[in-house]
């Protein structure tokens, strides 16, 4: 309960800051030197936050569709041969540093949102893929057997039994992906993507800590809110999903 109250308060504070950042200037003023501005005004913070979220949302949506689809494929009889390879590619892929992926995407796609989107998608695939595999593997064989016994086709079993039971674990993979993407998207500003990283970089370039703090705080607040929201959904789904067929 306290967690929910905390989330609502955080959401309210974030909304207030994004809508009327000037009101918060006195709070950030002590971090500035030589009368530098306390609030980033080059671009509206609200617009940057929305574009940041849009980038993350698009990337996570693509990652989820691809990763869940692929994880389902390699756990069916037709694709099972690919499982060992997919596993090792996923674990190797996880060691690739996001910044390196981002930097390497630039020459292929130019500066802007493109390389950031690609890096976010690539990096978001792995947690979702791993969690979907784990979720599908956690479905008790007896349950699948029972579903088969009632005459369900493989497709029906997948839709009505396996996926609902695996959903909480899949969602926690999506949450992980979204959090990583939120943080990585800030680095996207180094390749000219429109994200909250712009504020942080402006702060780094002009040695204005107020900019660094407000950019970082907004991203951190977004991450906490999204993570909290996902956890609520996971919790709401888990008991219902544990009832077979429910």
């Amino acid at each position: 309960m306290t967690r929910r109250v905390g989330l609502v308060l955080l959401a309210a504070a974030l909304a207030a800051f994004l809508i009327a950042p000037d009101r918060f200037a006195p709070l950030l003023r002590p971090l500035t030197t030589n009368g530098a501005p306390a609030i980033y005004t080059q671009t509206s913070l609200l617009r940057l936050a929305l574009s940041h979220l849009a980038l993350v949302g698009a990337a996570v949506a693509v990652s989820t569709a691809v990763a869940v689809g692929f994880a389902i494929f390699v756990t069916r009889p037709a694709g099972r041969d690919l499982l060992p390879l997919a596993r090792s590619v996923a674990s190797i892929g996880q060691t690739f540093p996001p910044v390196a992926v981002l930097a390497l995407a630039v020459p292929a796609m130019g500066f802007g949102a493109g390389p950031t989107l690609l890096a976010l998608i690539l990096y978001g695939l792995l947690p979702i893929f791993e969690n979907t595999l784990a979720g599908l593997a956690s479905v008790p064989p007896a349950v699948i057997e029972a579903a088969r016994g009632t005459g369900m086709t493989p497709a029906q079993r997948l839709r009505a039994v396996e996926l609902p039971l695996a959903l909480p674990v899949i969602l926690s993979g999506v949450r992980l992906s979204a959090i990583i993407a939120l943080s990585t998207a800030t680095i996207g500003s180094t390749v000219a993507a429109r994200t909250l990283g712009e504020v942080i970089i402006a702060g780094l370039l002009s040695s204005n800590s107020a900019f660094v703090v407000q950019g970082g705080a907004v991203v951190a607040a977004l991450a906490l809110l999204i993570s909290g929201l996902f956890r609520e959904i996971e919790r709401a789904l888990t008991p219902a999903a544990q009832r077979p067929g429910g």
Partner: peptide
């Protein structure tokens, strides 16, 4: 947990001042 949500760029940046 909260420390993990701070974007790396910001955490690195804040450390300087």
């Amino acid at each position: 947990d909260v420390v993990q949500t701070i974007p790396s760029l910001a955490l690195f940046g804040v450390m300087i001042p």
